[in-house]
Design a protein around this nucleic acid. Structure first.
Length: 806
RNA sequence: GCCAAAGUGGCGGAAUUGGUAGACGCGCUGGACUCAAAAUCCAGUGGGUGCAAACCCGUGUGGGUUCGAGUCCCACCUUUGGCACCA
């Protein structure tokens, strides 16, 4: 019989579904393994080969771990709220839930064609009221704890989309060509900043890629510094600034406050008032991009007021400039132009004094010196002197002195801002809150609060969602009086903040999940997804998890123990796959042409999982040939006979087998699938050369290959006479003694250059290696007329003679 | 500008972590089978010199450490991610 992938794959996919082969075992005696994909947004354009990379990797691990005796949780679901379905609804009037449903079934079909061993009984969908009921419930827990609050905030308002964006989302939208401006709106905000320290600290114990952890650390942006109080004698007021360099206080020559600072206009003297007002007005009009972007040229205006440097009583002019961020620190800074490049630039532009207070290798008038590894100079007053002190000591001395004077406090600051959590959209989880006429606010306790049907999905121009146009849904009355519902919905990130928990107990109608099940399955042992979520999703989910930990819903501090980012698969032209480039390789196309087993293996054979690598459709043929060769080791193509032979395996092939088992299991464990496949190929090539059809050798091959190419392995396993699925077969175990070589090749070098090799028994002692090496013809001639300075022998490896001509 | 990762045949990539560079696959060349093709199988395939045996060169560039460097150290170049007035 010939290998016909399409009928075999159909047959076994049907078998798995009928026999519920991959339904998760609830038997808690076995060790568990939770392997999770970042679940997809089911878009209308379907899956391409790039999407399948991570899913293939997790499936191999899921099947491998099952084979190794683990109780495996391997679920899939849909992150189905979101803008594309809503924008499609605005255009066509099609309800987003219909679009979503169509897209989901197309996605599900492709994933099933790939033969992924998901437990489809646990499929979840973030737009399902039975799911988002608990998303809403978690929100109310946060409300309860004071972690969700409403605030008039300058939001990132996207004009074209008529929607508020999270800080984290701004960049990508601007890159996509949208305009984003700052606009004050009353918004729901989540207090993620309250968890900043824990989010930072707990990163240390995670088995995550170092760059992802570093990106989160940078995003959280912890810094240690001081808030220092400057007197404003003419106004009888004080101005607080935040600095991480109190050691440079003697070098402060002016202060700068942001245009939004409450004192900005008040500090303007009559002479400067017009100019100041004009500057503040203009700053407001600038977009976030204009203010924080690539803008190099600094602008600013002098207020006419002076503050007093507490260290040396010097009068410091107070300036206003939009390079100072309102939302960070106190919105005011002390400028030390000699040792801060931004201050230096500003000082040069407006001709402000530059005073060296850190010993610099060059003239600070000409170039800024920002180094921290030097010592203080010119820094003393009648109380203290920092001169000669290093950074840490100077910092500490100055901090203590300022504290003792009552004009400074040590402070830790974070770049992380609270998370603006409301969106003016229809297709999202409604925020379950009622606003009463007396101004109070109460949670909606009757969950889920579902979405009403609407006629038009267009957001209102006032910045409210389409929900504001549905009076029947919007208004109501209960025992507390008349109310108006919250019209904001949650951002798309909400549903993905806790979905990994719901997979553990997806049907539970009493709680988000059962605590006993939670304790068994958490945390996620392996989480695979794209690096684009390094900060956003992964930071939000960690935040929610910690909140849930605090209220006793989960028992672990962190959700994802081990994280792995798969690298992107590029198109055949080495460019990112995109419709506009026309280089997208649709999954269904290659599945029809080559079959799931070949596609799965080729995805993994392309290169290291974490690496960005181009797709090459020709290359997949090598995998098809390999699968054909495996097939022919077991089945005759001339008739229906099975070629397996019983009986003992000869010693060299047995060694080959044990070596293969060792390499393949080690590599699979470490997600080095490309080299595991290469090893399987070498093994199959050797079996072919030896014309070996031995049952022991081939059954080991089938079980090892099954996680990679499950369909063909099921078929071959059945052909070999087994009645149970190969996924129930225990993984082969290697014996180190049987895998060990008894004979090795020794390389012989002269001055590090290979001059010959010889075979010898493993463990041959040094002396003997040297003696044999010396007698090799190919080596001998290089040892004539030379002085041997050194002889190196590494057992089982090589011999090297270091020589010098006589 | 700053931080991180990476540069190996025509191509994707291996290399037990300092020990025979180029595993495995694609592609290419030649051959077998065939009326022919497909499929399959066999042999070859880093560059150079040479009839050959051989020898020389070779892991982005330049230096260094070492008996020995793709691997370690220093400097530089290039590419890809991330951050980008956070005081």
């Amino acid at each position: 019989m010939r290998y016909d992938f399409s009928s075999i794959e159909k047959k076994w996919q049907q078998y798995w579904a009928e026999h519920q082969t991959f339904q998760t075992d609830e038997n808690r005696d076995k060790p568990k393994y939770y392997v999770l994909d970042m679940f997809p947004y089911p878009s209308g354009s379907g899956l391409h080969v790039g999407h399948l990379e991570g899913y293939t990797a997790t499936d191999i691990i899921a099947r491998y771990k099952r084979s190794c005796g683990y109780n495996v949780l391997h679920p899939m679901g849909w992150d189905a709220f979101g803008l594309p379905a809503e924008q499609y609804a605005i255009k066509t009037g099609t309800h987003p839930s219909l679009t979503t449903e169509t897209n989901i079934s197309s996605f599900r079909q492709t994933l099933q064609r790939m033969g992924f061993s998901y437990d489809w009984e646990r499929e979840i969908n973030t737009t399902d009221p039975a799911y988002f009921r608990w998303t809403q419930w978690i929100f109310l827990q946060m409300l309860n704890k004071g972690l969700a609050y409403m605030s008039e905030v300058d939001v990132n308002w996207c004009e074209e989309l008529r929607v508020v964006l999270a800080n984290e989302e701004v960049d990508e939208k601007i890159q996509a060509g949208y305009t984003v401006v700052r606009k004050p709106l009353r918004q729901w905000v989540l207090k993620i900043t309250e968890y900043a320290e824990r989010l930072l600290e707990d990163l240390d114990e995670l088995d995550w890629p170092e760059n992802v952890k570093q990106m989160q650390r940078n995003w959280i942006g912890r810094s240690e510094g001081m808030e220092i109080e400057f007197e404003l004698p003419c106004h009888k007021k004080k101005l607080n600034v935040y600095t991480t360099r109190p050691d440079t206080l003697f070098g402060a020559t002016y202060l700068v406050i942001s245009p939004e600072h409450p004192l900005a206009e008040k500090l303007a003297t009559a002479q400067h008032l017009v100019e100041v007002r004009e500057y503040i007005r203009k700053a407001k009009l600038k977009t976030e991009l204009e203010r924080t972007g690539l803008q190099k040229d600094k602008t600013g205006v002098f207020t006419g007021s002076y503050a007093v440097n507490p260290a040396n009583a010097q009068a410091l002019p107070v300036w206003i400039s939009d390079f100072v961020l309102t939302t960070y620190g106190t919105g005011a800074i002390m400028s030390v132009p000699a040792h801060d490049s931004r201050d230096w630039e500003f000082a040069r532009k407006f001709d402000l004094p530059i005073v060296e207070v850190i010993k610099s290798p060059h003239n600070v008038e000409e170039e800024v010196f920002e180094g921290k590894d030097s010592v203080c100079v010119n820094s003393s007053n009648s109380d203290i002197s920092l001169d000669g002190l290093d950074f840490a000591t100077a910092f500490d001395t100055m901090a203590s002195w300022l504290e003792s004077k009552g004009v400074g406090t040590r402070k830790v600051n974070y770049k992380l801002r609270d998370w603006i959590f409301s969106r003016q959209r229809y297709w999202g989880e409604p925020i379950p809150v009622k606003h009463y006429e007396d101004g109070t606010l109460r949670p909606e306790t009757d969950l889920p609060l579902t979405l009403p049907d609407v006629e038009a999905y267009q957001p209102s121009t006032t910045g409210e969602s389409p929900l504001a146009n549905i009076p029947g849904w919007l208004y109501g009355e209960d025992e507390h009086g008349k109310f108006r519902r919250e019209t904001n919905t949650m951002p798309q990130w909400a549903g993905s903040c806790w979905y990994y928990l719901r997979f553990i107990d997806p049907q539970n109608s009493e709680a988000p999940l059962d605590p006993q099940k939670e304790r068994y399955w958490m945390n996620v042992d392996l989480y695979i997804g794209g690096a684009e979520h390094a900060v956003l999703h992964l930071l939000y989910a960690r935040f929610w998890h910690k909140v849930l930990y605090d209220i006793g819903v989960v028992s672990t501090k962190e959700p994802f123990g081990r994280l792995f980012n798969q690298g992107m698969i590029l198109g055949e032209d080495n460019e990112k796959m995109s419709k506009s480039r026309g280089n997208v390789i649709p999954a269904d196309q290659v599945l029809s042409a080559y079959g799931a087993d070949a596609v799965r293996m080729y995805e993994m054979f392309l290169g290291p999982l974490e690496q960005v690598k181009p797709w090459n459709t020709h290359g997949i043929e090598g995998i098809s040939r390999f699968l054909g060769r495996v097939w022919r080791l077991v089945c005759s193509e001339r008739d229906d006979s099975v070629l397996l032979t019983d009986g003992p395996l000869d010693e060299s092939m047995q060694r080959r087998m044990h070596k293969t088992i060792r390499k393949v299991s080690e590599d699979t464990e470490q997600l080095k699938f490309n080299t595991a496949i290469a090893e399987l190929m070498v093994y199959v090539n050797d079996l072919h050369k030896a014309d070996c059809h031995n049952r022991t050798a081939l059954e080991a091959l089938i079980v090892m290959l099954a996680p990679y190419a499950p369909h063909i392995c099921e078929e071959l396993w059945q052909a070999a006479g087994h009645s149970e699925s190969v996924s129930r077969a225990p993984y082969p175990v290697f014996d180190p003694a049987l895998a060990a070589d008894d004979e090795v090749t020794i390389a012989v070098q002269v001055n590090g250059k290979l001059r010959g090799t010889f075979r010898t028994a493993a463990g041959t002692p040094r002396e003997e290696l040297l003696n044999r090496a010396r007698t090799l013809d190919s080596v001998l001639k290089f040892l004539q007329n030379v002085e041997i300075k050194k002889e190196i022998a590494v057992p089982d490896k090589l011999v090297n003679f270091a020589v010098k001509p006589l």
